[in-house]
Amino acid sequence: MVARADARFWQRTLLLQLGCDLAQGYGIARPMPGDNLPAWATSWVSESDWLGVPFLDGRTA
């Protein structure tokens, strides 16, 4: 499952807890030319509120 990442904090947390560890959308990055993607991907850092969220199956984001 892939979630839209411009959701509210509680929605992102719930999606992580349900095991959705893939997201896309403005909450991560605005649309960009494909040539910019490699540089963006190497410099992107997850929002701190996404780190350490426990999944319902015991894993951690």
Rank of each mutant, 00 (worst) to 15 (best):
F55E: 12
G27V: 06
L16Q: 04
V53G: 08
L22I: 14
P31W: 02
W44H: 13
W44R: 03
S46P: 11
A5T: 10
L16V: 11
G58S: 08
Q24C: 03
F9M: 13
P33C: 11
T13V: 15
W10G: 13
C20F: 07
L22A: 13
G27Y: 07
A61F: 08
V45Y: 03
D35F: 02
L56I: 08
G19D: 06
R30L: 12
L56H: 11
N36V: 11
D57K: 00
D35M: 03
L37I: 02
D57E: 13
S46M: 01
T42V: 11
D6N: 04
P54C: 00
L51I: 11
G52A: 03
L22T: 15
R12P: 05
R30D: 07
P33R: 14
D49T: 04
A39Q: 00
T60R: 08
S43P: 00
D57W: 06
W44P: 04
L15C: 13
A5M: 09
Y26I: 02
P54L: 06
G52K: 00
W44A: 08
G58L: 10
G58Y: 08
I28E: 02
A3I: 12
C20E: 10
A7N: 07
D35R: 14
L15V: 00
G52Y: 02
S43T: 02
L15K: 06
S43Y: 01
P31S: 11
A5D: 07
P54R: 07
A39C: 01
P33E: 11
L37N: 01
W40P: 02
W50F: 09
P31C: 06
E47C: 12
Q11W: 10
Y26H: 08
T13N: 12
G58H: 02
R30Y: 01
V45M: 08
A61D: 00
V45H: 02
G25Y: 08
L15S: 14
M1V: 09
G52W: 00
V53T: 05
L16N: 00
